[in-house]
Design a binder for these strands. Structure first.
Lengths: 196, 196
DNA sequence: CGTTGAACTCATCAGTTGTTGAAATCTTGG
DNA sequence: CCAAGATTTCAACAACTGATGAGTTCAACG
């Protein structure tokens, strides 16, 4: 490969700051609500530069969802250990992920999935194939119940996310994580291993 | 009051069909995603006619949320009877409301509240003052726990709505109501009267 | 009939959206 | 210095949004 002349790729800060602005704006307003211009403004950058780096808005969204959160290692981590405490461990783990910077992407995806078909498919695919399916295998539940049990877990976790991060209803919005773990953990436990 | 001459208000069908189109379109796409033009098209009507009847988009939304669902009578109905079965009764009642035509408005409000600040405030106000506050009084819970308990109930119900009506994740989306009552009822029961 | 006023339509406004292509700016290698 | 080429900006596009106001149609009343 012959080295060509010319300016070498310079300030990568801009690209990253666009990505950050995109993530937080998508999380605040959802996919449709977040305009390229608004993202560009928050990144202190020209709107056209966003397209220069990322092409279409779709691609920008996909890139900004690309986060160091790997369900392949997180799911086993949550389910490892005594089966009777899986519920509490699950709430604790999920809250720690969502409260972290990487969680902003998850909130953005959830919020967008509520009003945009495209992102809804994206999220369904991710949740079903990357999270729920893995959980089913890990738990070794009978095929019959597995689908319902994990979907019920999903309802409780989705509701927690909606109320805490999107609707921000008190006292859940600013509750201490451990309070929520104690309150919600046992209910998840019942969905996982209890009588239905 | 002197009766004036001129054409009397005629075909009220149009007004109602606009209202129906608005409700279903808001439910499908949310407040921002549903355009006046799309609503008018579905109602087979000129876009300007929508403004003629309802003024602004905001007012149209408010009108289309005006439904014969009165929390003042529904909340007591759900909580009356043996305290130990309140959880199951609650799930059953809420599902019957949401699965009815009137439920379309509720789905529209929930979906809109996810990406639009204005509708989010609207929904928070409604849920907190009309539903949760009533439930607290009806249950006669100690002031301290009441807020957390009812908010936890809200997380589970919101999650159920999101998964069943918005994300439409199986098998919850098309599950028999009584299956969900048996599965979720006891968990609500714990939020209401159990140990936290 | 003829007038009144509601029901309805048409054309259009101003603003925002995603996206594009040409041009300007600037850093670097030769 | 000079030219290459990446970075960044400007201006503009077509499509869409909510909204307005003037104009047309038409049923009902006197």
């Amino acid at each position: 490969m012959v080295r060509r002349s010319g300016r070498r790729p310079g300030n990568q800060d801009t690209r990253q700051s666009i990505l950050d602005a995109a993530r937080s704006t998508f999380a605040e307003k959802g996919f449709d609500g977040a305009s390229i211009r608004a993202i560009a403004t928050e990144a202190k950058v020209d709107p056209a530069l966003v397209h220069h780096y990322f092409g279409t808005k779709d691609k920008l969204f996909l890139q900004s969802m690309n986060m160091p959160v790997d369900p392949a290692e997180l799911v086993p981590k949550a389910l490892a250990g005594p089966r009777e405490e899986a519920g509490e461990r699950l709430v604790r783990l999920v809250l720690s992920v969502w409260d972290s910077p990487a969680g902003t992407a998850a909130v953005a995806l959830l919020r967008s999935a509520m009003s945009n078909e495209w992102t809804a498919r994206l999220m369904r695919e991710f949740v079903v194939t990357q999270v729920l399916r893995r959980a089913v295998r890990e738990l070794g539940l009978p095929e019959e119940e597995a689908g319902l049990r994990t979907a019920l877990v999903a309802t409780q976790m989705a509701g927690l996310a909606v109320v805490r991060y999107i609707l921000k209803v008190e006292p859940v919005a600013s509750a201490d994580p451990e309070t929520l773990v104690r309150a919600i953990g046992p209910n998840l436990q019942r969905y996982l291993t209890g009588d239905l």
